[in-house]
Design a protein around this nucleic acid. Structure first.
Lengths: 150, 150
DNA sequence: AAAGATTGAGCTTTCAATCTTC
DNA sequence: GAAGATTGAAAGCTCAATCTTT
């Protein structure tokens, strides 16, 4: 073992610890503010946002699960609740009848717009310490932080 | 509203979305690998690690809650379970008898060492795409991503 | 047999109320 | 009254088993 391996590893462990802490904190505070001001949980916003960006305003259940990093069972129930609220509905795929699409409803679009505006304002204040160049830097770093999935 | 504000905001929302996705993915995969190979959940490792770095190997319940970004009720039960496993115990503060310390036991130290080794190996492979300079960059960016707590 | 989605059971967390101590 | 920690109830997630379709 080279003499400075230990300290390099320590830094690595610390960096990861900070990544978790900073992300969890942002998630918690931004989620709290969003839900307080719009009634929409951050997870719901994430789903609505990702659906709205997809062609047809829909994604398969599996794709939502991958993007949110939750299990398929978790997505089933998440979409159940959002369906009960009227923000999304389900559509069977005709080519492959095993798959279901979660699809944005017009109510979902109506609710998304103002919530996204508020969320963006919160984000601006959370990221105001970073310059545009630094935000691009962060973007680039995150893109390269990939871990292979099983 | 300036003409390019919309696209700047879009980028901001995307950056945050990527931050969440990348972090959740790392957390999920590294957690899965750690628990598979050592039997220790990532959350438990985080607790043991932070206790081991503190003077006396202990932190107040509230401090653990803040660092892990969970509620005080959540920490009470987390420490309950880790106490049942024998990895930590509780100690009353004498100056202020409202506070309790969660304290690393010798069994906790014994379990932490090899788990940390494995975790570090996983981290090396997850971060191998980043140079040392880029890891410092990430560190610096994370430090500046602060959000005020209520 | 494998893949996508759902379900039942169980675990961990939050929320709100409570207790103790300052 | 306020702060730190704990508790009961409930929400949301995972895990493993199941069902349907490929």
């Amino acid at each position: 073992v080279p003499p400075d391996t230990a300290s390099v590893d320590d830094r690595l462990v610390s960096t990861f610890g900070r990544l978790l802490e900073a992300t969890h904190m942002l998630e918690h505070e931004l989620g709290r503010a969003l839900e307080l001001e719009t009634g929409l949980p951050l997870t719901w916003l994430e789903v609505l946002l990702r659906l709205s960006r997809s062609p047809g305003g829909e994604l398969t259940m599996g794709e939502v699960a991958r993007q949110l990093v939750v299990t398929s069972g978790g997505v089933t129930r998440l979409v159940d609740r959002m369906t009960a609220a009227g923000y999304v509905d389900r559509r069977r795929c005709e080519q492959d009848r095993r798959v279901q699409y979660a699809r944005l409803t017009s109510l979902g679009r109506t609710v998304l717009a103002p919530a996204l505006t508020r969320h963006t304002e919160h984000l601006r204040s959370a990221f105001e310490a970073l310059s545009t160049a630094e935000r691009h830097q962060l973007d680039a770093l995150l893109d390269r932080l990939r871990v292979q999935r099983p």
